[in-house]
């Protein structure tokens, strides 16, 4: 259940961004999560709900973009989608496979309201 720690990190990053940039409201958080991060989406949403309840972020929309696992064969350079965690090159059967996509755990964007009185 590291989803709760992950949710904590997300919330603290968002609050930090709000403070630094004078966002008064965040209505949506965009996440990009790779297939190889073992994050259970429901648990993450549960954690985010629990941690934002009663705060200014309560009810914030969370959009999750899942990134499929993508590998590159070190032997023949073929790039391919890794299905069911089979790290084997479909062309040369090589097993030295570099993961090029699928480890992401990023906050890609925020939908915000900016406090204009603080600007300039």
């Amino acid at each position: 259940m590291h989803e709760l720690s992950i949710a904590e990190s997300i919330i603290s990053t968002v609050r930090n961004e709000m403070k630094l940039n004078g966002y008064t409201t965040v209505s949506e958080i965009g996440l990009r999560i790779g297939e190889m991060t073992d994050i259970v989406e429901d648990s993450l949403r549960f954690g985010l709900d629990a941690l934002t309840k009663g705060t200014s972020l309560e009810g914030v929309e969370v959009k999750i973009e899942t990134v499929p696992l993508q590998g590159k064969c070190e032997q023949c350079q073929r790039e391919f989608r890794i299905v069911e965690f089979k790290f084997v090159c479909p062309d040369c059967q090589g097993v030295a496979i570099e993961v090029i996509l699928g480890k992401e755990l990023d906050i890609s964007y925020l939908e915000v309201e900016i406090d204009t009185t603080q600007e300039a």
């Binding site: 992950i6 990190s9 997300i10 990053t13 961004e17 940039n21 966002y23 209505s27 996440l31 755990l105 990023d106 906050i107 890609s108 964007y109 925020l110 939908e111 915000v112 309201e113 900016i114």
Partner: peptide
């Protein structure tokens, strides 16, 4: 409302 691309790693502090 404005969309701000922030591109932050969630675990950047740990990293």
């Amino acid at each position: 409302m404005a969309r701000i691309e922030i591109e932050k790693k969630v675990l950047s502090e740990n990293e």
